[in-house]
Amino acid sequence: MLSFMDSYTLWRHLPFPSSGSDKSLILAHSDLAGADEYATTVIRFVERGIFKPAPIDVLAMLQEIMHRIDLLGNAVSDGDQAVARSQHAYAALLHLVYQQFLDAGRQGE
């Protein structure tokens, strides 16, 4: 399993995935951007030691996004299949980072 700092570093250096051309992927991309914005609370924790979780359930939001992408299956074009995998992988990594952030912050409380 990746350590918190390893997963955080991967997330911070991973380019944000594209939106694709399928309407469902465009919506997932938009929601993923929102989750990514909420996850910036992790940056404050790493850089300044401030543990302040987002006001929403980021983990549930990411799980819902990954579920929606999974439901697309083979319904999208070949080009959008790669986009779907990229979005899903980004959401999965962000989920891991945010869970580790919550665990680390709660241990320090």
Rank of each mutant, 00 (worst) to 15 (best):
Asp6Ser: 08
Ala33Trp: 06
Ala54Asp: 12
Ala75Met: 10
His88Val: 00
Ile56Gly: 04
Asp103His: 10
His29Gln: 12
Ser3Asp: 01
Ser86Tyr: 11
Leu27Met: 13
Leu25Pro: 05
Leu27Gln: 11
Arg44Trp: 12
Leu72Val: 14
Tyr98Trp: 04
Tyr98Leu: 02
Pro15Gln: 11
Tyr38Gln: 09
Leu25Lys: 06
Ser30Glu: 10
Gly73Cys: 06
Asp6Ala: 05
Gln107Cys: 13
Ala39Met: 14
Leu94Ser: 05
Tyr8Ser: 09
Val42Trp: 00
Glu47Ala: 14
Arg68Asn: 14
Arg106Gln: 14
Asp36Ser: 10
Ser86Arg: 15
Phe16Asn: 00
Pro53Ile: 01
Phe4Cys: 03
Ser3Glu: 05
Leu2Trp: 06
Ala91Tyr: 01
Glu64His: 06
Asp70Gln: 04
Val42Cys: 04
Ile69Thr: 08
Val97Phe: 01
Asn74Arg: 10
Lys52Gln: 15
Glu37Cys: 05
His29Asn: 14
His67Thr: 07
Leu14Glu: 13
Arg106Thr: 09
Val76Asn: 04
Leu62Pro: 00
Gly34Leu: 11
Ile43Glu: 04
Ser3Gly: 11
His88Asn: 07
Ser18Trp: 02
Leu62Ile: 11
Asp57Glu: 02
Leu93Thr: 05
Phe16Gly: 00
Thr40Trp: 06
Leu2Pro: 00
Asp31Pro: 00
Ala35Gln: 03
Ala28Cys: 15
Pro53Arg: 02
Leu27Asp: 08
Ala35Glu: 01
Ser30Phe: 01
Pro17Cys: 15
Gln99Met: 07
Leu94Met: 12
Gly79Val: 01
Tyr8His: 06
Ile69Leu: 13
Met66Gln: 11
Val97Tyr: 01
Arg44Val: 08
Leu10Val: 07
Gly49Val: 13
Val97Ala: 02
Ile43Tyr: 09
Thr41His: 02
Lys52Met: 15
Pro17Val: 15
Ala89Met: 13
Ser7Gln: 08
Leu14Arg: 14
Gln107Gly: 12
Met66Glu: 08
Met1Cys: 08
Leu2His: 03
Pro15Ala: 06
Met1Gln: 10
Ala28Asn: 15
Arg12Met: 13
Phe45Glu: 13
Arg68His: 10
Ala39Lys: 10
Ala89Cys: 05
Thr9Gln: 14
Ile65Gly: 11
Asn74Phe: 07
Phe4Arg: 14
Phe45Trp: 15
Tyr8Trp: 13
Thr9Ile: 00
Leu14Lys: 13
Ala92His: 00
Arg85Phe: 14
Lys52Ala: 12
Ser7Ala: 15
Ala60Gly: 09
Leu59Gly: 00
Ala28Ile: 13
Ala35Leu: 05
Asp6Arg: 11
Ala54Lys: 09
Ala60Gln: 07
Lys23Arg: 14
Arg85Gly: 13
Val42Met: 09
Gly108Val: 06
Ala92Ser: 08
Gly73Phe: 10
Gly49Ser: 13
